Simulated assay, not measured.
Amino acid sequence: MTHRYALSWSGGKDCMMALHKLQKQHVDVVCLITTAPIETGRTFGHDEKMELIESQSRMLGIPVHFIRCRYDHYTADFIADLRLLNESFSLDGIAYGDIYTDAHFEWGETTAAAADLQAFFPLRATPSAAANMLEEFIDTGYKATVIRVRKDKLSLDYLGRELDPSFAADIARTDCCPMGENGEYHTFVHDGPLFQSPIPLQKGKILESEATYRLELNNR
Rank of each mutant, 00 (worst) to 15 (best):
H3A: 13
R4H: 14
R4M: 06
Y5R: 09
S8Q: 00
S10E: 03
G11F: 02
G11S: 10
G12P: 07
K13A: 04
D14N: 05
D14T: 04
C15R: 07
M17T: 01
A18D: 05
A18M: 03
L19I: 00
H20C: 02
K21C: 03
Q23I: 08
Q25I: 00
Q25E: 15
V27N: 13
V30A: 09
T34K: 07
T35W: 08
A36G: 14
P37F: 02
G41F: 11
R42V: 03
T43W: 08
G45L: 11
H46A: 10
D47M: 05
M50W: 07
E51V: 09
L52H: 08
E54A: 15
E54Q: 14
R58T: 14
L60D: 11
G61F: 06
G61L: 05
F66P: 15
F66W: 10
R68H: 14
R70T: 15
Y74K: 15
Y74W: 12
R83W: 14
R83L: 10
S88D: 14
S90M: 11
D92T: 09
I94N: 05
A95P: 09
A95N: 08
A95G: 05
D98K: 01
D102V: 10
F105G: 08
E106W: 06
W107F: 09
E109Q: 15
T110E: 15
T111P: 04
A113W: 12
D116Q: 15
D116A: 14
Q118P: 05
A119H: 08
R124K: 08
A125C: 13
A129F: 07
A130C: 11
A130L: 04
A130K: 02
N132A: 13
M133A: 04
L134W: 02
E135W: 08
E136L: 06
D139W: 00
G141C: 03
K143E: 00
I147P: 05
R150P: 03
R150A: 10
K151H: 04
K151P: 08
D157S: 08
D157L: 00
G160V: 02
G160K: 00
R161I: 00
L163V: 03
D164M: 03
P165R: 00
S166D: 08
A169I: 01
D170G: 09
I171W: 01
D175A: 12
C177E: 11
P178I: 06
P178Y: 04
M179W: 03
H186S: 02
F188N: 07
H190N: 12
H190D: 06
G192D: 08
P193F: 09
P193Y: 02
L194A: 13
P200L: 09
L201M: 01
L201P: 10
Q202I: 07
K205E: 13
K205G: 06
I206T: 03
I206D: 05
T212D: 15
T212V: 13
N218W: 14
N219T: 15
R220C: 15
R220F: 10
